[in-house]
Write a protein that binds this DNA or RNA. Sequence first.
DNA 1: AGCGTGACGAGTA
DNA 2: ATACTCGCCACGC
Length: 130
Amino acid sequence: MSEQRSPEGGRYEDDLAQALPEYAERVLDVAELIPAGRVMTYGDVAEWLEQGGPRQVGRVMALYGGAAPWWRVVRADGVLLPGHEQRALGHYRAEGTPLKEASRAAEGHLPRIDMRRARWDGGDRAEGHT
DNA sequence: AGCGTGACGAGTA
DNA sequence: ATACTCGCCACGC
């Protein structure tokens, strides 16, 4: 069976290409829930959704992250998003996100997020989930 | 269909 | 702290 038609008349593939994929919407929703001053890793978001993996979440953020607080979804090692370090840093300083200053041995290095303190598990709302 | 690539992550050396 | 390996999975060529 090919050439299946969607209710709107277009081919399903076309609809999927233009509408924000539901998965992407779910990812952005979670990003919106992260409190200021806290972060969630790509993997955490995927786990929380019980769907996809870190790389899928990363893909979504890369494509549609601009519409969400993208700086609150970070790598597990706390490294700032390459190419957006200054913007991210500005947000972290403004929100009071826990940072680990670069050691003087590594001079030119930017601070990294202190994941132990900044990581947010979904805390308050974890109850309603599972 | 195979293969490289990526806003990833964990493990090992 | 750095480097490299694997596992992961959606995409594009």
